[in-house]
Design a protein around this nucleic acid. Structure first.
Lengths: 227, 227
DNA sequence: CGTAGTGTTGAAGTTGCTCAATCTTTGTGG
DNA sequence: CCACAAAGATTGAGCAACTTCAACACTACG
């Protein structure tokens, strides 16, 4: 009688994403192809341009997905939190880099084996489809911010987004530097910094520390973001 | 013995996307839930905010997917060409509008029936997963353009993208106005227009007509786009 | 105590937007 | 077939916003 492997039973991401599509008895088949890996903040897990050898589930930590162009400019195109799926099945080559913003733990699956598993276990493919569609909708929401909002609105929208993801009531810890915020928002470090201090001056937020944001007036922040 | 319905057999999108995941004998089950619909250029097929009642496959024409914010600013977040899949299964409410840029024909599926079909027919879910992942990668590529490139590079990148999609050798027909280009690029009409004439002046493209672009120097265009 | 990394602030310079006028194309009715 | 209206596209001038460049402050860590 198949039972749940200990590591999965103890995993905080057990009920999330891909893993959540497997029943306790079934999870063995996913566990069988998975190995654990951890990465310190700053480490590059995936290099754009390399062959795509694995996918993964984020167990803990935060990662950024980055694209760069011919002139070396960088744009963060996604953030990965615990439970999120990393990588793209069916794609032989990576077009984006993945970098740890904070120390992270991953559950890694070799891509060929994962693709076999997706064939053999239809609920897994459906769960990935659901997530992919949700991620796409999120990316498109972000496109509106990148294309149409000014610096103030971008920063406000970013803070709201982070607040939602960490379901913070009034204080939230940013998982990244001003530089990374700029990469995500299509702004320079300086502009991000100026907007943060401006929001502070206007009593919309407070900054007890560089990366600690207290939301003083969430509705005004939402109004500024023009969400 | 099941055979291919006439309408599907004659359809130019038969081998594309969702339909392509069904064998000639199987297509009946998709055909059974589908009805045809056509829309003239300019017609709104989906209103953001409405309940999501259907998905569809584009048979002919071009559609735009648009998001708007509280201040009414609009951003095109995707374009749909023949064979592309319209709508988001599993999402109860639309967050984006879909508008025909050119007269279009669609093959429409009621969402609940489609979702049942995805359960019953795993290859269909896998095909949608593949497409969703590819669309996501495309959206992310576009995010780099929106966030990091200046007006000249945006317009150059857009023209290259359109050239690819219509696999044009040297002359391509834009399926949209300058205004829609601006919506897609996060620029004003005026800026798009100025960049187009500048590219013309620099002998990178020629404009026999407003929406007809002749690519005079594709490699220089690529260099300008900084792809 | 010095150095490196990160963040803030200021001044000057560009880029793209706004507003406004003009030109072109398209479509409609006489 | 032409005239006219409406929509789309182009061009120009002035302005606001963001970037760039530069200096300086704060923190952490050896």
């Amino acid at each position: 009688m198949p039972c749940e492997p200990d590591r999965c039973a103890a995993c905080s991401a057990r009920s999330e994403g891909l893993c959540g599509s497997f029943a306790d008895g079934d999870i063995t088949s996913l566990h069988a192809i998975a190995r654990r890996r951890s990465a310190p903040a700053g480490q590059v897990l995936v290099w754009a341009g390399e062959p795509a050898t694995f996918c993964a589930t984020v167990v803990s930590g935060v990662l950024k997905i980055v694209r760069h162009d011919a002139q070396g400019r960088e744009q963060i195109v996604g953030l990965l939190f615990p439970g999120d799926f990393v990588g793209e099945p069916f794609a032989d080559r990576r077009t984006e880099s993945v970098v740890a913003l904070k120390d992270a733990d991953l559950c890694v699956y070799p891509r060929p084996l994962l693709e076999q598993l997706l064939e053999a276990h239809p609920p897994a493919a459906r769960v990935l489809l659901r997530r992919a569609l949700a991620t796409l909708t999120n990316a498109r929401r972000w496109m509106l911010t990148l294309g149409r909002r000014d610096a103030r609105q971008k920063v406000a929208a970013f803070l709201l987004d982070m607040a939602e993801r960490s379901d913070a009531v009034d204080t939230l810890e940013l998982p990244m530097s001003r530089g990374a915020m700029g990469e995500a928002l299509g702004l320079t470090i300086e502009t991000v910094s100026r907007q943060m201090t401006a929001l502070c001056r206007d009593q919309v937020i407070a900054l007890p520390a560089c990366r600690t944001v207290r939301l003083l007036d969430r509705s005004r922040l939402a109004a500024l973001a023009a969400v």
